[in-house]
Simulated assay, not measured.
Amino acid sequence: MRPVFDWANSLADARNALVLGIESSCDETAVALYHTTDGLLGEALHSQIDLHAAYGGVVPELASRDHVRRLPGLLAELSHKTGRTLADVDAVAYTAGPGLVGALLAGASLAAGLAQGADLPLIPVHHMEGHLLAPVLSEPELDFPFVALLVSGGHTMLVACHALGRYELLGQSLDDAAGEAFDKTAQLLGLDYPGGPALAHLAAQGTPGRFTLPRPLTRQRGLDFSFSGLKTAVANQLAKVSDVQDHPDLAADFELAVVETLSTKCRWALEATGMSRLLIAGGVAANTRLRAALQTLCEAQGAHFFVPSAALCTDNASMIAHVGALRLADAQRSGAPVRARWPLSELSAPRGAAHA
């Protein structure tokens, strides 16, 4: 099986190329440089957490304006970090979707302007494919095929990855994504935004086992997810307790319910596909209890487990520049379209690439 990195080397246009990646799909603004031979050269990133904290969630208009404001400075910071300028860049990759339309347009507009001004090709990148292949940046031995669990605030899905651009959706969230359930449950517990990390911190102080919470959609062997009922179950349990001292235990039981649900679905996905590699990506992939549970699962199943570094779990431009390098054959000379909704199944292999 050919390693993932060989996709870039198998394309004539991708040899010895430097790709600038731009990420602006939601509330992280980032730029990065990836070289097809030397790997990741550097990244500059700004998080909008403080901007949105007062509202308890992302405000799309504020996010879009902040991307426009931050991107020029981040480009200057990246140039200072890497010693590279736009004159050294061979192509510009940007997040084309899915995401918030205004936020996507901020990055796409900059990408189009830079590309037109320097006569560079543009590469639209699918945000979820970026997450899907982010573990390769820290686990270069990862090969196709593998099962991927993409788990974040906006998405929870299981994908059978047969080759670059050949993705089979096995199951997805029918309502709240796991990360969304974390955030909403954190609000119920009176925790600050962003709720996911705050809830995980609170759960670490508690002991699971006191509260009975469901493991949604695990009574039958399906691969779809549903977490809205779990959030409601937490609200019902919360109404029965009056002491804030109970919150850590309730948080621990909630986190365990999510982790066990995700772990069960991953086991079923491995068994259904016959694959021996499991990858997790997305913001919730940074959760230590989830990482530990899936590591244990893979050891029991005789499977290999891959997870990106914590910095690559959240939205970042490194993964966008990386996928851009893999998809140099798909570069275009004009236009920078964006798509708020973009099914992963609509992707295909890069033009001219032979499947492994």
Rank of each mutant, 00 (worst) to 15 (best):
A163K: 05
D253H: 05
A285F: 06
T156S: 10
L279Y: 00
A233W: 12
E61Y: 04
G113C: 09
Q295E: 15
R339I: 02
L199F: 12
A281K: 04
H35A: 09
A96C: 07
L62Q: 10
P140A: 14
F227W: 11
G209R: 14
P337T: 05
H201P: 01
H201S: 14
R69L: 01
E129V: 13
S79Y: 14
G209L: 10
L78E: 09
R339D: 02
Y193R: 12
L132T: 05
A200M: 14
S10Y: 00
H247G: 02
A286E: 04
Y167S: 11
A106C: 04
K231Q: 07
S109P: 07
P216S: 08
A134F: 10
V338R: 06
A103T: 05
L256I: 03
R219D: 15
M1G: 11
A115P: 11
Q220M: 10
A177Q: 04
S24T: 14
E255H: 04
I320Q: 09
H304C: 15
L120N: 13
A53V: 06
Q245E: 12
A96P: 05
A54L: 06
H126I: 05
Q220C: 14
S263P: 01
S226D: 07
E255N: 06
A285R: 01
G56Y: 06
V284R: 09
G73Q: 08
F5H: 14
R291A: 08
E61R: 13
T207R: 15
Q48H: 11
A233P: 05
Q220N: 13
A134V: 03
L347Q: 06
A203G: 07
D88V: 01
T288H: 12
G57W: 02
D243Q: 09
H247D: 07
R327M: 02
R341Y: 02
A329R: 02
L18E: 13
G73P: 11
D253G: 02
P197G: 13
D246P: 01
A239K: 10
G113T: 15
H46W: 09
Q237S: 14
D27A: 05
G107L: 04
A252H: 12
Q205M: 08
V19S: 03
G130N: 06
S334D: 12
V151R: 10
K231W: 11
L40Q: 02
L191N: 08
S242K: 13
G222K: 10
L294G: 00
L105D: 12
R341M: 02
I320E: 09
E139Q: 15
L51A: 07
V338I: 07
L78V: 06
Y167W: 05
G352N: 03
M275Q: 05
L250F: 08
S334Y: 15
T207F: 01
P72R: 04
L75C: 10
H52Q: 10
C298D: 00
L133E: 07
I280Y: 00
L188D: 03
E299W: 11
A163F: 01
V258W: 06
V284S: 10
H80N: 15
P216W: 04
L86I: 12
D119H: 15
D6I: 02
V244Q: 15
K265Y: 00
A14N: 08
A186E: 10
A63Y: 01
E260A: 03
G222H: 10
L174C: 05
Q237M: 07
V58H: 03
D175A: 09
T82F: 13
S309I: 10
A293P: 01
A329L: 03
A257R: 12
A292W: 06
S318R: 08
H46M: 07
G352Y: 02
P3D: 12
V241F: 12
L150D: 06
Y167A: 11
W7H: 13
